[in-house]
Amino acid sequence: MAANNTKEILINNSPTHAFSNDVSMAAQTNESHVLIIEHDQERRELILDRPVYSIGRDSCCDICFINSLFVSRRHATLIRVPRDDKKHSYYYRIVDGDAKGKPSSNGLMINGRKILDGLMINGQRIPAHDLKNEDEIVFAPQVRAIYYLRRNSMPAGEETDSSYDDITLIDPRMTNDIED
């Protein structure tokens, strides 16, 4: 019974239920959250747009590292957390272990440091970190990810004028005269 309460607390402490439509939320905020994952000489880009992601070796995980023996079956959980600025923007929090509060065997390193601070749940400290742009997350040797928060300067719904996309401006002083 306590495990179910812990799962509820982990997810409900981060009110992801406030976001009903994941795709429209990204459009409203002009932000994109990207995770670049490097594992076994493979590099892939994942656009984060869901409220919760499970990360681990288990094939049921949303972000799966099947062949890495140092990654736990349920190594970490990414949770979308709204910002307090009332602009419908959000960030992601990474929590060591599964959504039930069970930590991973080897923990997480963020920017070269093992995370020890975190959330207090049922009297137990669960390591967690609020991700910032360019944070590097190390799950195990040869298994890492880099988080990027990209902010678009253009308001949602506006498009650029593509008629100028193919124009290259050249200063006449940059070219050599053929006649010289």
Results as ranks from 00 to 15, higher is better:
K132G: 08
E179Q: 09
S54D: 02
E8V: 07
S105L: 10
V52G: 09
I110K: 04
G56N: 03
C60R: 14
L10W: 02
I37H: 05
P127V: 01
I115F: 06
K87I: 08
D98H: 03
N152S: 15
S104F: 12
T168A: 07
A26H: 05
N122Q: 14
R74I: 01
L35H: 00
S104Y: 07
L78Q: 01
A18E: 14
A26W: 05
I79H: 02
N4C: 11
G123T: 03
I79D: 00
S72A: 00
E8Y: 08
V71T: 14
R74L: 08
D85A: 10
E45F: 10
S89E: 14
H33A: 00
N67D: 15
T168W: 09
S105T: 11
S162W: 05
G101M: 00
I110E: 01
D84I: 08
R83C: 15
I121Q: 02
D177H: 06
R74P: 01
S54E: 06
K132M: 06
G107N: 01
H17N: 05
A76Y: 06
S68T: 09
Q28R: 13
D180E: 13
T168E: 15
M25R: 09
L35Q: 01
F65M: 05
S163W: 06
H39K: 04
I94G: 13
R93N: 08
I110C: 02
H33Q: 02
R80P: 00
E158H: 04
N13Y: 04
P155I: 08
L149V: 05
R113L: 12
P51W: 07
D180P: 08
D177Y: 09
P155L: 13
K100Q: 13
N176F: 14
G107P: 01
A128C: 11
S162N: 07
K114P: 06
I126Q: 00
S105P: 05
H17I: 12
M174Q: 13
E136P: 00
I115D: 10
K114H: 13
I79L: 09
R150E: 11
